[in-house]
Design a protein around this nucleic acid. Structure first.
Lengths: 343, 343
DNA sequence: ATGAAAGCGCTAACAT
DNA sequence: ATGTTAGCGCTTTCAT
């Protein structure tokens, strides 16, 4: 590798254009008080020299970085991958750069923020589920005046800008959909205990069914004995739901991956999907689309939510105390052509 | 949000400890020439004041950032997600931060680098497949003296540090494995034309079989008519491979997602997997694990490769011209307990 | 509308 | 072993 060429500075450009460095700075930053004539000359000099402003110097002088930070769990997960996609795309669109901050499950986010992130001078931070519910983190951020946006927070919805998907609405529509199809006995593969989304999805689904006239005794809720393996979790619950008691004709699973695992097992039992058994998931992930027949599922506009989060972070005003409900869509597995039914 | 407290500077700490700012700097940067006594005093002052060095100032002064950049495709994809996981984790371990640079499929990476990345002063860059084969980008990086590491490059293996997975070895082992199981008629669901990994996997698989004594006429290679939908691609090829001509007893698919799609279709045909038909994928992705029975597949240590890439980037020496072959592992779907067979 | 000076917080290079 | 000086490249403030 060659040694890097000496970078072009504002002063270099200024010399070339016959103006001061400050004038060049004004042009670069689109200040209005510059004569069109000088502006043109400066822009020509910028183009000629290939000048690129130095981020570090700008950050030091303005005490603002052009970095957006996003907390991320340390595991392969459709939800986070989508979130990152949206955030990266939007950051780029606004001239910012997305930094990933991977936090271990067993460590304190607030501590990590203090130790490693505070000095970066992040322009804004994205707090996806889990992190957005750490009161200690929120306290630390507000103490610093650090701008942030929360995604689907479980606590203090009015505390600060937050964007969430209306899981309750989604499962309610799903319940109606299945009920309309004629299903009367249901199973639920519930998510982890204590996980808010899990509670909302499970309870919302059940309540909607009851509201439709379903008897509680016709809804069986099962939870995997262990979460170590998604495949095993799905099989475990399938075993209980399909081998014992009166078999449900429709099962709603906490997410698509669990639904896929459950379906695999059901097929081994020679059940035809969706004829003998309808299975619904949540997230509208790759898994839901790859499965055959495609999974009934609830789509969260994750990418768009992340884009909106970044949009708020880069906007001049601290984005207000807005809460943004998001429309949900249901995809039908009984119709292989998988059309979206709008809210 | 409160207004941020005035940040603590080196000078502040120095005043408190009764030393110069520079001495504090030396302590922070672990310079050896500091008396244990003063070091202790300074460290106490640092702890008391809650001092955190300012990244921007440090970057400006040293002309080094603590940022690792990683080029990323704009789509949800197991491979890139894993790569990001490994890179984020390793960056963090070394005190760096990982920045994602999402590049659209239809734009020039080299141009984007010039426009948006050059002024960041990246400590190092990770070039995953596709980007690592842009000669224009490599030229631009070397012109700038920009440190970088390539992952599985298709061109110029000796040009610069690169890390690759030995796909050829993987498919060779896979071929042997299937042959040993007694398969004699094979199908291949090939990847996109012109894609290097696709060529290596397909050709390597076929050549290995031929070497084992398989007749070329017993190996049928099929390619989806369209790549718009993975599910449809899998069905498309399955249709041709399983409905026409003599049915193969084993099919190797370019990746796990295609394999899953193909399997779904095969099951609709009432073929029992793996009894009637063995299906193998590539990547060892979530899909391979969620499928039931689990997919035969070839595992790339993607996370570890990314970690190694970062390790090279942060090491003082420009990491040499080393090429790093990586061991491959094969997982067997005929054995549901999915043990790894070491190389 | 433009320029000059000062300084953001840090470190390299030279003192001592 | 520690302190002093002079910037890094930019922006702010205050002149003009």
């Amino acid at each position: 590798m060659k040694t890097p060429p000496r970078p072009v500075t504002l002063a270099d450009v200024g010399a070339k254009a016959g103006v001061s460095a400050k004038t060049v700075s004004r042009v670069v930053n689109r200040h209005p008080e510059v004569t069109p004539a000088t502006r043109q000359r400066v822009e020509a000099a910028i183009a000629a020299t290939g000048f690129k402003p130095n981020m570090a110097a700008r950050s030091l002088a303005t005490d603002r970085s052009f970095l957006i930070g996003c907390f991320i769990v340390n595991s392969h997960n459709f939800y986070y991958a989508e979130l990152v996609r949206g955030a990266a795309r939007a950051s780029r669109r606004y001239g910012f750069h997305l930094v990933l901050e991977e936090i271990d499950a067993d460590e304190s986010v607030a501590d990590y923020y203090h130790e490693k992130m505070r000095n970066i001078g992040y322009h804004g931070l994205i707090l996806p589920p889990h992190y957005c519910d750490s009161a200690a983190l929120l306290d630390a951020l507000e103490e610093d005046g650090q701008r942030y946006v929360r995604i689907s927070p479980a606590i203090d919805p009015d505390r600060s800008p937050s964007i969430y998907a209306d899981d309750g609405q989604g499962v309610s529509e799903l319940a109606e959909h299945l009920w309309r199809l004629g299903h009367r006995r249901f199973g639920v593969l519930a998510g982890p205990v204590g996980h808010l989304a899990s509670t909302i999805r499970c309870d919302g689904f059940v309540q909607s069914l009851v509201r439709l006239g379903c008897s509680s005794s016709d809804i069986r809720i099962e939870r995997p004995a262990s979460w170590n393996s998604i495949a095993m979790a799905g099989r475990d619950v399938a075993e209980r739901l399909l081998r014992t008691g009166e078999r449900p004709t429709a099962i709603f699973c906490y997410n698509d991956e669990l639904a896929a695992a459950l379906i695999g097992y059901a097929r081994d039992m020679n059940l035809s999907i969706p004829h003998d058994l309808a299975v619904a998931g949540f997230d509208d992930s790759e898994t839901a689309r790859l499965n055959w027949p495609p999974l009934t599922t609830v789509h969260q506009p994750i990418v768009e939510m992340a884009e909106r989060a970044v949009g708020w972070l880069v906007s001049p005003e601290p984005s207000g105390q807005t809460i943004c409900p998001v429309a949900l869509k249901i995809r039908s597995s009984t119709d292989p052509d998988a059309v979206f039914i709008p809210e």
